[in-house]
Computed example of a mutant assay.
Amino acid sequence: MVSSDHAEEELLAIGEVSYRSGIAVSAIHFYESKGLIRSSRNKRNQRLFSRRELRVLALIKVAQDLGFTLEEIGEAFRGIPTDRTPRKGDWQKVSRALDKALEEKINLAQRMRKQLNQCIGCGCLSLSDCPLRNPQDELGKHGPGPHLLR
């Protein structure tokens, strides 16, 4: 609970957080319910957020754009202290936590690009009939899914 007027001046109302982050109020509530961000309450029971949460929201937004799940993001953020403003070392821990998964996503995207580039110009537009990539639909025998990419 925020106790002084001075402390409230340093905190942001949810509308300001929404405006500055570009994230809808409902999404901010959702991220808070998942424990990804935190708020305090003033005497009128209004949510107030520290500027720290703007940084976290920015990372959440970028991580989601990169295909990370909220669970993956939450796990990476476990190392961020909640009792103080995160320092450079804290953010580096988050970076390391996401680095391996990000590297896997990059490798998958590169494999996908390579596979697509090998089929461009072929003209068959069908992996089930492609004599170069999947003759006699051999991959279909292995079940559903992108076998060439995984």
Rank of each mutant, 00 (worst) to 15 (best):
V2P: 11
S4C: 12
H6D: 15
H6E: 14
A7V: 14
L11G: 06
L12H: 03
V17G: 03
G22R: 01
V25Y: 10
S26L: 11
A27I: 04
I28T: 13
H29E: 08
F30T: 07
S33K: 08
K34V: 03
L36G: 06
L36V: 07
I37P: 02
R41K: 14
N42K: 11
N45P: 06
N45K: 13
Q46W: 15
Q46Y: 14
R47E: 06
S50W: 00
S50T: 04
R51V: 03
R52Y: 12
L54I: 09
A58H: 02
L59T: 07
L59K: 11
L59H: 10
I60G: 01
K61A: 10
K61F: 02
Q64K: 15
L66K: 13
L66Y: 15
F68K: 11
L70A: 05
E71V: 10
E72F: 00
G74W: 01
F77K: 09
I80C: 09
P81G: 07
D83S: 10
T85Y: 06
T85E: 06
G89P: 05
G89K: 11
Q92C: 08
K93Q: 07
V94G: 06
V94M: 03
S95I: 12
S95W: 15
S95F: 15
S95P: 08
R96D: 10
L98C: 07
K100H: 08
K100A: 09
A101F: 01
A101Y: 01
E103L: 15
I106Q: 11
N107S: 02
L108A: 05
L108G: 03
Q110L: 09
M112N: 13
R113S: 13
K114Q: 07
N117C: 06
Q118H: 09
I120S: 10
G121K: 03
C122Q: 13
C122E: 12
G123T: 08
S126E: 03
L127E: 05
S128R: 14
S128F: 10
D129A: 09
D129T: 11
C130N: 06
L132N: 06
L132M: 05
R133V: 10
N134M: 08
P135S: 02
Q136M: 11
Q136I: 12
D137N: 15
D137F: 13
L139S: 07
G140E: 03
G140S: 06
K141I: 05
P144K: 12
P144G: 10
G145R: 01
H147W: 09
L148R: 11
L148F: 02
